[in-house]
Amino acid sequence: MINFLKNNPLFSKVAGINLFSKIGDRLFYTVLLTIAASLPKGNVAVMIVSVSETFPILLSFFLGAIADKKKNKVHLLIKNSFVRTAMYLCIGLLFRYSYTVFLIFLMSLLNFISDLSGNYSSALITPFTKTLVQVDDMEQAQGIISMTTQLINVLATFAGSILLAIFYRSIIAYINALIFIIVGISYFLIHPKLITVEKNITVNTNENTLPTIKKILNYYFIIVPI
């Protein structure tokens, strides 16, 4: 794996930045659940948090189909990172108010938008992976991404629990915002190389989004007739 990463430096940077952003996806989850469970109407609050974390995953098919049709993917990656920064800065400010179910709803909504932007960014990155890696190495590249993503999710959730015991909850929101600032700056630093790569990516703007989604679902589940 080490040799593969050394031989594909730009892929390694892009994958590394995307994985780093996934820390922000999971880091705050424990905080939200802890606050939700402590409220008088804890069951409702926990359900709201769970939906905000789960629903972006369910929308991944739609996001992938939309991302495939987008031009200027590099600029969208940078913008998404700063949008996510703004989301967690807002969450940090919300901690000034008393904890209520409505407050959890607002935090979960911002967290939902951030996670949605994160999944959209991952979909934007997929065409770069296919271009940066040789066809024969694609299986290994996807294996590395899958394995490290699962590892990051576990470690980020664990790190969130530790930080919750050390810092105020608002500080963890600001740490998340800092993560996405770093992600945005990292994409900006390599964006000239990515723009060059993007010129070789074919953007299919002719096919409608809905048929594309059906094809994706049919490919993975073989249940949706086209």
Score class of each variant (00 low, 15 high):
M1Q: 08
F4H: 10
P9N: 09
P9E: 09
F11L: 11
S12H: 03
K13A: 11
V14I: 06
V14S: 06
I17T: 04
N18P: 05
F20K: 07
S21L: 02
I23V: 13
I23H: 01
F28H: 00
A36M: 04
S38Q: 10
P40A: 10
M47S: 15
M47L: 12
I48R: 02
I48E: 01
S52R: 00
S52E: 05
F55N: 05
P56C: 07
L58T: 09
L58R: 08
L59R: 01
F61C: 08
F61Y: 14
F61I: 11
I66W: 08
I66R: 07
K70S: 09
H75R: 15
L76W: 14
I78Y: 06
K79T: 13
N80F: 12
F82W: 04
V83N: 04
T85K: 01
G92I: 00
R96A: 13
Y97D: 14
Y99F: 14
V101D: 07
I104P: 00
N111S: 15
N111F: 05
N111V: 03
F112G: 00
S114T: 10
L116I: 07
L116K: 02
G118R: 01
G118M: 04
G118Y: 01
N119M: 13
N119G: 11
Y120F: 15
Y120T: 10
S121E: 03
S121R: 05
S121H: 05
S122Y: 04
I125D: 01
T129S: 06
T131P: 01
T131C: 05
T131F: 03
V133G: 00
D137Q: 15
D137G: 12
E139W: 03
Q140G: 04
G143D: 07
I144P: 00
I145F: 06
S146V: 10
T148C: 10
Q150S: 15
L151Y: 12
I152G: 06
A156R: 01
A156Y: 02
A156T: 05
T157G: 07
F158W: 07
L163N: 02
L164G: 03
A165E: 10
Y168L: 09
R169T: 13
N176M: 09
A177C: 08
I179S: 01
I179G: 01
G184I: 02
S186F: 05
I190P: 04
K193G: 03
K193M: 05
L194Q: 02
V197W: 06
K199M: 11
T202C: 14
N204L: 11
T205S: 13
N208V: 07
L210I: 14
I213Y: 09
I213L: 12
K214F: 09
I216T: 13
N218S: 10
Y219I: 08
F221D: 13
I223P: 06
I223R: 14
I226S: 14
